[in-house]
Computed example of a mutant assay.
Amino acid sequence: MQERAVDDGKQTTAQIFHEYYAALVGYACKFVDPQTAEDLVQDVFIQAHNKIPANAGSYLFRSVHNKCADHFRRLAVHKKYVEEVLFVQEELAFFNPDTGHTSLLEAPESSVWAAIEQLPPKCREIVRLRYEQGMKTPEISTVLGISSRTVETQLYKAMKQLRNVLKRAHGILLNFF
């Protein structure tokens, strides 16, 4: 590791590293596993090399905190992508033109339809008109005699409730709604 020039009594990067490394890893371990903590702290030192200000302690602890938060954001994005891929794989596995099944939504025994049956009556009716009959928001509002905004609000509430029910039932976040 290159050392920062010593001027005005400032510590070198190596000295700062040796002084704070253990404490920073300990701090990061509050959020992540020890190996990840070491990796994140090392990343902070690599990115901050020769840029560490005079208040090194607070700067480094804040940097490690931010690095841990970034780590969790990346994990969340990865998890969402994996869940979407799993759903697509499940959907593809279900697709069978010989039996007429082209979507999980078309399966009468589907947990999606079971979850729809748990919705309040008005929400359920709107969801059925939208997904069984393929109606658009203005058509649904005309048929039911309610405003388009009410239809959109009811669909939003229904989709939110269905995601929660299906997430618990399958452990899969369905993003096709």
Results as ranks from 00 to 15, higher is better:
His49Trp: 13
Glu38Pro: 03
Cys68Thr: 10
Val151Gln: 01
Leu24Trp: 00
Ile140Cys: 02
Ser63Lys: 05
Ile52Gly: 04
His101Arg: 09
Ala76Glu: 11
Gln118Lys: 15
Phe72Asn: 02
Ile52Phe: 11
Val44Glu: 07
Ala158Val: 02
Ser148Pro: 06
Ile46Thr: 00
Lys160Asp: 09
Ser111Ala: 12
Leu86Glu: 09
Leu60Pro: 07
Pro138Asp: 06
Lys157Glu: 07
Cys123Leu: 15
Gln118Phe: 00
Lys167Gly: 12
Phe17Val: 04
Ala169His: 09
Gly171Met: 04
Val6Phe: 10
Arg128Glu: 14
Gly145Lys: 01
His18Ser: 12
Glu125Asp: 11
Gly145Tyr: 04
Ser63Gly: 04
Lys167Cys: 11
His18Tyr: 09
Lys51Gln: 13
Phe31Val: 02
Arg124Lys: 15
Arg4Ala: 11
Ile46Met: 09
Phe87Met: 05
Thr150Asp: 03
Lys30Asn: 14
Glu109Asn: 08
Glu109Pro: 01
His18Phe: 12
His65Cys: 06
Gly100Val: 02
Met135Arg: 10
Leu104Phe: 07
Pro97Ser: 12
Val85Tyr: 09
Ala54Arg: 10
Leu155Ala: 05
Phe17Cys: 00
Gln133Pro: 03
Thr13Tyr: 11
His49Ala: 10
Pro34Cys: 00
Pro138Cys: 08
Gly9Cys: 14
Leu166Glu: 01
Lys10His: 06
Lys10Cys: 09
Thr102Met: 14
Val41Asn: 02
Phe45Asp: 08
Thr137Trp: 04
Thr142Arg: 14
Arg128Leu: 10
Val64Asn: 02
Phe95Ser: 02
Cys123Pro: 03
Lys136Cys: 13
Glu83Leu: 14
Leu119Ser: 05
Glu91Val: 07
Glu38Ile: 01
Tyr156Pro: 02
Thr102Arg: 13
Asn175Ser: 15
Tyr21Arg: 07
Leu75Ser: 06
Thr12Arg: 06
Tyr20Trp: 10
Ile140Val: 07
Val6Tyr: 08
Val6Trp: 08
Phe72Lys: 03
Glu83Phe: 03
Thr102Val: 13
Ala107Cys: 00
Phe72Pro: 10
Ala14Gln: 15
Pro108Thr: 00
Val25Asp: 02
Val82Cys: 05
Gly134Met: 13
Phe31Cys: 06
Asp70Ala: 09
Asn66Phe: 07
Ile46Leu: 15
Gln133Val: 05
Tyr59Ser: 08
Asp7His: 07
Thr150Arg: 09
Cys68Tyr: 02
Lys136Ala: 14
Gln154Cys: 09
Lys30Trp: 06
Val85Asn: 08
Leu173Glu: 13
His71Ala: 01
Arg4Lys: 15
Met1Gly: 12
Pro53Tyr: 05
Met135Asn: 06
Leu92Gly: 00
Leu162Pro: 01
Phe45Arg: 09
Asp8His: 14
Leu174His: 12
Val151Gly: 02
Leu144Tyr: 04
His18Thr: 06
Gly9Ser: 12
Glu106Gly: 11
Leu40Trp: 03
Ala37Gly: 04
Ala114Asp: 08
Lys79Ala: 13
Lys157Arg: 14
Glu139Leu: 06
Val25Gln: 01
Val6Asp: 10
Val32Tyr: 07
Glu139Pro: 03
Arg73His: 11
Ala114Pro: 01
Asn96Arg: 05
Val44His: 04
Val112Met: 13
Gly145Phe: 05
Thr142Phe: 11
Gln154Met: 13
Leu75Met: 10
Tyr27Ala: 06
Glu84Gln: 14
Glu90Asn: 10
Ser58Trp: 09
Phe17Arg: 07
Ser141Lys: 00
Asp98Pro: 00
